[in-house]
């Protein structure tokens, strides 16, 4: 068993866009569907942070299936040019849990140019927040255009930051062509089911 034997989902996106919130929403659903799940968070800063992250999954995941990988202040390198330390962490998961089904790799905060190495992630979600500005999709960052699924999060904040969801929707459709995108509010769970449907269909049943 090794990293090639499990499904790997990459979750990237800018700092504060809601990557961790999405992970926390997805994990219980995947566990509920009967999958054994591992989670890797890049750029965990202290052991205390790692412990808090582990505790946030309560009894859902064994503590040794939640890992932090420090990427030496190079978050993009860790998921793109040189994913070796993330792959090493996945290898350790599979050694300890040979029945592992899926690993979620959450990147450190990215800029819009970040993409996942296809050898690290079979499926790549890029999470942006409406609070970062309604013009984010039309900047055509590689993360936004190349992700398998674009997640536009924090839709509840749109009225407070003068972001027009119709503009974001139109721009996202324009820059992504036929590739999907989903609006979410990970705080109350809106849209998470739709994300899960994509993940189920494109990764786990693929």
């Amino acid at each position: 068993m090794g990293y090639r034997d499990v499904a790997k989902i990459g979750i990237g996106g800018p700092v504060g866009s809601g990557k961790t919130a999405l992970v926390r929403r997805l994990v219980p659903e995947l566990v509920d569907e009967g999958y054994e799940v591992g989670v890797i968070a890049n750029d965990i800063m202290t052991q205390e942070d790692a412990d808090v992250f582990r505790e946030s999954f309560g009894d859902l995941l064994p503590a040794d299936l939640v890992e932090g990988v420090e990427t030496g202040a190079c978050p993009h390198t860790g998921i793109r040019e040189d994913p070796s330390m993330n792959l090493a962490a996945i290898d350790e998961f599979t050694e300890r849990h040979p029945d592992l089904d899926v690993v979620i790799v959450e990147s450190g905060g990215d800029n819009l140019a970040a993409t996942f190495n296809p050898e690290l992630a079979d499926y790549f979600l890029f999470v942006i927040s409406v609070a970062e500005g309604e013009d984010i999709p039309r900047k055509r960052g590689p993360g936004v255009t190349q992700a398998d699924l674009l997640v536009v999060n924090k839709t509840d904040l749109a009225p407070y930051v003068d972001a027009d969801l119709e503009v974001i929707e139109s721009d996202a459709a324009d820059v992504r062509g036929d590739d999907p995108f989903v609006f979410t509010n990970c705080k109350d769970g809106t849209g998470v089911d739709e994300v899960l449907e994509h993940v189920d269909r494109e990764v786990l049943f693929a």
């Binding site: 990427t71 030496g72 190079c74 390198t77 994913p83």
Partner: peptide
């Protein structure tokens, strides 16, 4: 440093 063996994670 282009060699992808995780050197950038070690100090």
């Amino acid at each position: 440093s282009f060699l992808p063996v995780g050197g950038y994670t070690a100090s």
